[in-house]
Design a protein around this nucleic acid. Structure first.
Lengths: 141, 141
DNA sequence: TCAATATACTACTATTTTAATAGTATTATA
DNA sequence: TATAATACTATTAAAATAGTAGTATATTGA
């Protein structure tokens, strides 16, 4: 039940783009520098974010990345869903065939309940929330 | 963010012991037969549950396992905590040193919030809840 | 005491996932 | 057309997961 580095790095990446939301596109290498993360690794992660419609890419010289929508419109559930591949903590939620015991399984109902709570938490948090928290932390320094 | 088979199998194992809570100790091989799980794998899992004080073991002939406390006294958080090793979805919750960016990290606050919600969910569900769900499912057949 | 039967412990292993790295292709701009 | 950015694909090292295997230890009853 660990969050992968993909989700963690990807969230930091999106935060970095949110900080520059009003400016033009940002180079991935600058994001990597700011967050001290591997360029090649982030370039894989950001493509998943692009596919999920969270960021937009501009290719070629003077290209870069920017958010595809406003920080308040991006939920943490979208980021984590795109980077973990799924939000489900057990497979049988999506594929009842994944487990032979599906129809008789009492535990499943509670795993699903927990899963719903996780999804709800992730849906209630937006990039704007994280951005404001970030600004509050930086003002304190 | 997947639940391991250890947690899933372990919960099914505990449910099986809860079904026989009033009777004497149960052989692990019978639990394996009932749930169609590997004996050797479950014998590792059940030791973690014993160490966590969830089950009691009786060695030797006519030995077996039973719950160490009443089904309503066993929270899902105990089972998952014992079998996942931790309930934390990110390392810096327990070890601030795990991440260099700890003090400046805005995401962390939200990961912690989600983590707290997961723990709360797991604490609200007891083995008795699962037991009753199991009985309801079996009556329906 | 000893055979039978249960758990306890330790080591090993195959597979999958994670977390990258590397190199090349493609696109857009000046 | 050179340059500088993203896009794509393959490879890899390390760690975690999900087991298997074998032996040791404890308990019971004959």
């Amino acid at each position: 039940m660990k969050l992968s580095t993909r989700s963690r790095y990807g969230t930091r990446l999106v935060l970095e783009l949110a900080l520059k939301f009003e400016s033009g596109p940002v180079f991935l290498k600058d994001i990597c520098k700011a967050q001290n993360l591997s360029f090649k690794y982030l370039s894989q992660i950001i493509i998943l974010l692009k596919t999920a419609g969270i960021v937009k890419a501009m290719r070629g010289a003077y290209g870069g990345y920017c958010l595809a929508k406003k920080p308040e419109e991006i939920k943490l559930s979208e980021i984590v869903g795109a980077l973990e591949g799924t939000l489900n903590i057990i497979d049988c939620i999506k594929n009842p065939e994944a487990c032979k015991k599906y129809s008789n399984c009492a535990s499943r109902f509670y795993w699903e309940e927990i899963n719903n709570n996780i999804c709800k938490s992730l849906e209630e948090i937006t990039v704007k929330n994280i951005l404001e928290k970030h600004r509050a932390l930086n003002l304190l320094q």
